[in-house]
Simulated scan of single mutants.
Amino acid sequence: MAEVDNKVPAEVRTQFGKGFARRLRVAGQIPAVVYGHGAEVVHVAVPARQVTLLLRKKNAILDLQIDGKSTLALVKDVQKDPVRQIIEHIDLVVVTKGEKVVVNVPLHIVGTQQAGAVLELDAKAVPLLAEATHIPEFIEINIDGKAPGFKVTFADLDLPADATIDGESTRLVVHVHAASAKDSAESGEELAAELADEAAHAEHKAEIHAEQHEAEKAEALADAELSGAAAAAEAAE
């Protein structure tokens, strides 16, 4: 897949509220806020398709084009609809080249441990102090063929030259141990719990979707009533 251009056109917006945000999303844009470095907070709208593709990468850096000027911004928070997973709002913090930022970088496990051994994942991400424009997409850990007793701490990770651990370097990341009867029993219990959680989650999603549908209908009716009132007022004038 071709790399998506991180130069993002950002249009300054002066309107707010759920109704306006909904109209933006219908028009293929996402409301966002840009802050940091002592500058005033700027409210913008960015293209949904391009930004959604860029956000596939953790800790994405966007090169915002605001009023003809380039502003580098780190994606700090992404708010999504709990049911449809549509991006509703983005928080962006201004960064500069050469600046160090603290970010959580995902850990990727590669390979399979020795047959019969059990892998325990103790951390899913590592806190790094890294240069803003050179944040690694992930840190890889190879556990292929590893036997019981194998372990990796933050200090053992293979990091980029300009990145350092922001935290306790002795923290355990993964370890491999021998399988036991207890592990088998826990695996069965965990599977049953996961199936129950999935069923409950599906039911909850259906309830949220129904509630959201009713709320959207109410908002649409309110918008229509306001539009009608405005039209009547104009006609009276």
Rank of each mutant, 00 (worst) to 15 (best):
I165P: 06
L55G: 04
N59V: 00
T112P: 02
I66S: 09
L107I: 15
D122I: 04
K124S: 12
V173R: 06
D63Q: 12
D162H: 07
E190P: 01
K80S: 08
V173C: 08
V126N: 07
F20A: 13
H209A: 15
V75W: 05
A39G: 09
L195N: 10
H209K: 14
A60P: 00
K69S: 13
A48D: 15
E198W: 07
V95Q: 02
G149W: 13
V78L: 04
I90G: 02
L62D: 03
K100A: 09
D144W: 03
A163G: 08
L74S: 04
A210M: 12
A125M: 12
A229D: 12
G149Q: 13
A236D: 10
L195A: 11
V173D: 07
V174C: 11
G98M: 03
I208K: 08
T164Y: 01
K146F: 01
L128F: 08
A10N: 01
A178T: 13
M1H: 12
L92E: 02
S227D: 15
G19D: 14
G38K: 10
L128N: 09
S180W: 03
T14K: 14
H209S: 14
G116E: 02
A229V: 02
G111E: 04
Q113I: 13
K97R: 15
K69Y: 06
H177C: 02
H134W: 03
A181Q: 15
G17K: 10
K124E: 14
A233D: 12
A231I: 07
E234P: 00
K205I: 15
L195T: 05
I141T: 07
A161V: 10
E190D: 12
V118C: 03
A231S: 12
T164M: 11
E225A: 15
V51K: 10
E207K: 15
L62S: 04
G68C: 10
Q65V: 14
L62P: 01
L55Q: 03
V152W: 02
I135Y: 05
H43V: 00
P31H: 05
V51W: 06
A10T: 00
H89I: 03
G116R: 04
V41S: 12
H175G: 00
V83C: 10
K100S: 08
V33D: 01
H37E: 10
V102D: 09
A202H: 11
L128W: 06
D144C: 02
D162R: 04
H175D: 08
A132H: 05
A39F: 08
A224E: 14
A130H: 06
A123N: 09
A32H: 07
A210T: 13
A45T: 04
E137I: 05
P136A: 11
V4G: 04
V75G: 05
G145C: 03
V4N: 04
N6Y: 03
